[in-house]
Design a protein around this nucleic acid. Structure first.
Lengths: 305, 305
DNA sequence: TAAATGCGGTGCAATTTTTGCATCGCAAAA
DNA sequence: TTTTGCGATGCAAAAATTGCACCGCATTTA
C-alpha cells in the first residue's frame, strides 16, 4: 500500500533506532528517509524522535504515533484480506505466538487440521514466553497467542481459558511409572529437569517447593520442553509437563509416561487464548482462533472456562 | 495529514456518489481524483466503486475499505489530539449525538460545566433519533451518543444507563397539576401533545395505550420537546417528558409542572450513553463521557445501571 | 429520433514532490 | 586529538501528481 510507506518507514526507523540503518534496510537513501520524517514531524507539529549522537529514539509522541501506525497497518491487512476473500477461495495469513508447552505438540496438529480446510492460508508461529507473547500482541506482531499461567494486562482480551494440571513425565521403565499420582516428595531422590524461571509451570512448582524441607535435585534447567522430553530417553530423570502437550501421544512424547502431580503440591494453571483487546482479527486468524477455542472445549470439556 | 489525502478523497467520493462532484468539493480536477482512485484500486487489486452512468457507488469491497478509512481517520485525530495534549493545555473536540430529550436541557449545562474546566475544548452536538445516532457512531461521525429506549446493535457499547420514568407535563394552572401521580385515564379529556413515532417515549406510551378503550386526543405530534413544552403556556394541554429533561428546572421547563405517569400505564425507559465498540475515544471525548456517566450517577443514584 | 447533458477514462505537457549526491556540523569513542 | 558515525541541508536529477483537452458511453431532453 503506497499511502502507508511513510508510516512503514517510521516504524522501521523506530525499530532500528537509526535513520541510516533503517534507510539501508529499506533500500533508500538516508537523506530521503530523513526528510520524510522531518516532513511528517513538521505536519504533526511535534517531533516524534529524540535525536541522540548514536541515532534516534522515539519520544512520548512518537510512542503514541507508532502504536497508531501498527494498529493501522494490521487493520489494513485485515481489510485487504477480507477484500480478496470476496473474490475467490480463502487465502490469508495467521500469526500466532505460543509458549513452549503448546508449540511442539498441540499447535502442529491444529494448523494441519486448519490447512486441510483452507490450503491457501499460511502461518507464522513464534515461540514466546508469556511476557513477550503479550508484547507481540500489543505491537501487532501476532494476531493471537496461547499463554500459560500468567497475569495478563488489561489491554489483552482472554478469548478462552482451560485449566491444566501439572504432570510428571518419565520413561515408562522408571520405577515411579506405575503410580497413579505423585507427590513432590516422591521426586526427591531423582534427578529433575526443571523448566526455566519465566515459564508458567515453574511458577506453579515454586509454590509447592517452598513447603518442601529438601529441595529438588535439578540437574538441567531449560526452556525447551522437547529437549527435556528427549533427555528422558537417556537418563532416568523426571520432567514436568501439562496435559495439552502430551494429549494424543504422538511425536517425542509417545514413548513417555505422564503421571499427575498431586494437587496438594501444585495447583492447576490456566492456559489462555488471548488477543489484543478491541482488535478485529483478519478472517483467517479469527477462524483459526475459533478452531483453537473449540479444540479446548473438546479436549478438556470439564476444564474450559 | 498528507498521507491521508487519498483516503479522505475516497471517503468524499463515496459520500458524493460522483467523482466530478467530489473533485469539485475537494477543489481539484476530476482527472486527478479519478486517477488516484484508479491507482488505489489497482493497488488493492480489486475495484472499490461500481461505475454507473450517473456516477459511482461503493461495492462490497469499497464498503469494507471506507469503513476502515473512517476508523483510521478518527484514530489519527485521536492520536494527534493526544500528542498536542503532551505539550500544553488540554485542547480537543468532542462530537456527540443526542436525542431531543437530553439535547435541550441536560446537555447545555454539562457542556458548560466541562468547558469551565477545559476552555480549550470545542463541541459538536448533533440532534439525532436513536437509529441515526447509532449510524453516526458507526460512521465515526460522533464520538459518543445519548440514546433513549432503543435496542442497540452489537457493535455499539453501552457505557452507562439510567432508568427514566415518563412524566406528564402541564401548566401549573392546569386542574390536574395538584395530583401526585396520574394515570392515562386522567388524560382522556385533555388535548395531548404526542412525541413522534420514532421517539423512545412514544414506544413506551404505545404499550400503555393499547390497553385503553378510548384513545388519547392527540392535537399535535412533534419531534421537538421544546416546542411542545412551550405550547403548554398557551393551551391547557398535556405533554410527556422524562425527568432528565426537566431536572434542575431552568429554561423553558421552569414554568411547568411535571407529574409521574403511573407505572401500570407506562414502564420506565432506559437512557443510554453509548459509543462504538472497540473504539478508543479522543482524550476530550473520553473525559466528557466520564463526566456524563458521573452525572447520571449523581442525578439518579438509584436508577443508574 | 436526434441533440444535449453528464458521467468516467486517457494522452500529453506542465508542475510539484521526492530522491540521491556531496557535504556540513556535532558529539561520542578510540 | 583524531576518527567514526550520526542527523541535517543545498542543489540538481528523477519521479509523481496535476490540469487541459478530448474520447466513448448512457441517459435525459427537445
Amino acid at each position: 500500500m503506497r499511502y502507508l510507506t511513510t508510516l512503514k518507514y517510521i516504524d522501521v526507523v523506530a525499530k532500528e533506532g537509526s535513520i541510516r540503518k533503517a534507510a539501508d534496510r529499506l533500500a533508500i537513501t538516508s537523506t530521503a528517509l530523513n526528510r520524510r520524517i522531518l516532513a511528517i514531524e513538521d505536519e504533526i507539529g511535534h517531533p516524534l524522535f529524540e535525536r541522540t549522537p548514536a541515532g534516534v529514539r522515539l519520544n512520548t509522541a512518537g510512542e503514541l504515533f507508532v502504536q497508531h501506525i501498527r494498529s493501522q497497518m494490521s487493520d489494513v491487512n485485515r481489510v485487504l484480506s477480507q477484500i480478496s476473500d470476496l473474490s475467490g477461495i480463502r487465502r490469508g495469513h495467521v500469526r500466532i505466538s505460543s509458549g513452549p508447552q503448546t508449540i511442539s505438540a498441540f499447535l502442529p496438529r491444529e494448523i494441519a487440521r486448519y490447512r486441510e480446510k483452507h490450503p491457501g492460508v499460511t502461518f507464522q508461529v513464534l515461540r514466546k514466553n508469556s511476557q513477550s507473547a503479550v508484547e507481540s500482541l500489543v505491537s501487532h506482531e501476532t494476531d493471537t497467542a496461547i499463554i500459560f499461567e500468567s497475569l495478563l494486562p488489561s489491554d489483552i482480551q482472554i478469548v478462552s481459558s482451560v485449566s491444566q494440571i501439572v504432570q510428571i513425565i518419565m520413561s515408562p521403565e522408571h520405577p515411579l511409572a506405575s503410580k497413579k499420582t505423585l507427590r513432590l516428595q516422591d521426586c526427591l531422590g531423582w534427578p529433575i529437569l526443571m523448566p526455566s524461571e519465566n515459564e508458567g509451570i515453574r511458577t506453579l512448582l515454586n509454590v509447592g517447593q517452598v513447603q518442601q524441607a529438601t529441595p529438588l535435585q535439578t540437574i538441567i534447567e531449560a526452556d525447551s520442553f522437547d529437549m527435556m522430553a528427549n533427555y528422558l530417553i537417556f537418563e532416568n530423570a523426571l520432567g514436568f509437563q501439562i496435559p495439552i502437550s502430551i494429549k494424543g501421544q504422538y511425536g517425542i512424547y509417545s514413548h513417555l509416561k505422564a503421571i499427575p502431580l498431586d494437587h496438594r503440591d501444585c495447583k492447576p494453571g490456566l492456559l489462555h487464548i488471548a488477543q489484543l483487546k478491541g482488535r478485529v482479527l483478519p478472517v483467517a486468524a479469527a477462524k483459526f482462533q475459533d478452531q483453537l477455542v473449540q479444540r479446548f472445549n473438546e479436549a478438556f470439556p470439564e476444564d474450559t472456562i
